[in-house]
């Protein structure tokens, strides 16, 4: 499976077989990483949006609102 394995010999068969195998593994894991990262970003975006909505609905907390605005500007 790995070139470090005992008695491993590279030949055309290994190149084709493992080439395809690792391509499949990379395709699966890249997609999973994409999903994981996008999901975390989505959750963060939701949280930010909720915080913003809360801030605009509750102007009695001017300190928080000011902070949000400063962050957004910067």
């Amino acid at each position: 499976m790995l070139p470090t394995t005992f008695e491993f010999r590279w030949d055309a068969g290994h190149m084709i077989f493992f080439g395809v195998f690792y391509a499949v593994v990379i395709a699966i894991f890249t997609s999973l990483v994409y999903v994981a990262v996008k999901s975390i970003i989505d959750v963060y975006r939701d949280m930010t949006a909720r915080n913003e909505a809360n801030a605009s609905e509750h102007p009695e907390h001017p300190h928080e609102a000011t902070n949000e605005a400063v962050i957004a500007k910067s």
Partner: peptide
């Protein structure tokens, strides 16, 4: 939310 988004994105 995280589960919901993982499901959606998958």
């Amino acid at each position: 939310p995280l589960f919901k988004y993982i499901g959606e994105n998958l």
